[in-house]
Design a protein around this nucleic acid. Structure first.
Lengths: 179, 179
DNA sequence: CCGGGACTACTCAAATTTGAGTAGTCGTGC
DNA sequence: GCACGACTACTCAAATTTGAGTAGTCCCGG
């Protein structure tokens, strides 16, 4: 299952034909950075490959003023079929992706406990800021917020809370890690 | 920050010179699949690149019986320096990677609520099994289990618990998603 | 003794991501 | 009226991952 493909096909299916930059912009408006994080290189790469496979097709090329030309893509019937497959895969796969901090922690036996505490405290600050941000998000919804969007925000909040709980635990035991 | 590089350099620094397959095998013994998930292609690719950059170096080629020859690599002084840098980066970066299920959920407005519930129930089953497994892991430790290893197991457990809590919430609201 | 399954150790092409651009346009404050 | 930062829209090479091998060896039951 390739999340980038799912993202692109889903965007074109939900909103109709769009060009690359628009897909990114709309995703930002949707706070889609919560559920996806696609950089330009990946996005345009995926657009080209999807077009080559016939899952999407360029419908026209526009140019407003002297700004760069842009190619509008639409999803094809075959693309919609593929979208269903990818969505089913995404719903089926439970993947707790490993967190590199765990890798680092296992290799931190020789690290000064004070320095380790510093890193963890910094992380807690970042996480707390994210938690605060998403709590606000819960109150002030963005336009067209659906029940699914609420669930995604809640997912993120719960994940951040779990991270915070764990980080506080690490802080407690930071002394023992050096021994 | 590249987790694969951190993983390889860290393994060679902690355990001394090893060949590729051994790095994977030892990682499995360490239950390192918790904090890293490196497939053969990535591993050997990383080994070749690290060697080309002088961060590790082949020390000898062995062959036991008629099994495939294997190249033993050792970390170099420069590799140790890079290891410190990568570890610091891993400790600094807070990255909640987006979960594709969120992406799928946002695109599931047209999905039959019963089918959605089915997917979520399956996911809960998988997560519950993982939780049970890691709870046992907490009791029966593997050899050489350090305080850091315990923390990593606990991290995984907390993350799974958060997922379970969220999934139950989704189940509650599965009906509303179709509306 | 011999077929099947599991392990050993690594390879490779193709897909994908990353990170850093490019070449402009637009707004805005001074 | 012009410098400056931000946006527009996309490109590209290099790094990295993926997924599927390869070519054997080892072991175990019947």
């Amino acid at each position: 299952m390739n999340p980038t493909r799912l993202f692109v096909l889903g965007a074109l299916a939900r909103r109709g034909p769009m060009y690359g930059h628009q897909i990114r912009r709309d995703a930002r408006m949707d706070r889609a950075d919560l559920w996806s994080d696609v950089r330009p290189g990946s996005l345009y790469g995926a657009l080209h490959r999807l077009a080559a496979e016939g899952l999407i097709e360029p419908v026209r090329t526009e140019q407003s003023g002297h700004r760069p030309a842009r190619t509008v893509y639409a999803i094809t019937a075959e693309g919609r079929r593929e979208l269903l497959v990818l969505r089913a895969e995404a719903l089926s796969e439970v993947a707790l992706r490993p967190d590199p901090v765990d890798l680092a922690l296992v290799m931190s036996g020789d690290l000064d406990p004070g320095e380790l505490r510093g890193y963890i405290e910094d992380r807690i600050r970042v996480l707390a800021a994210q938690a605060a941000f998403h709590t606000h998000q819960g109150e002030r919804a963005w336009p067209d917020q659906t029940a699914a969007d609420d669930l995604v925000v809640e997912h993120t909040r719960l994940r951040i809370e779990a991270e915070l709980a764990w980080h506080r635990m690490v802080l407690d035991q930071a002394g023992k890690l050096a021994s």
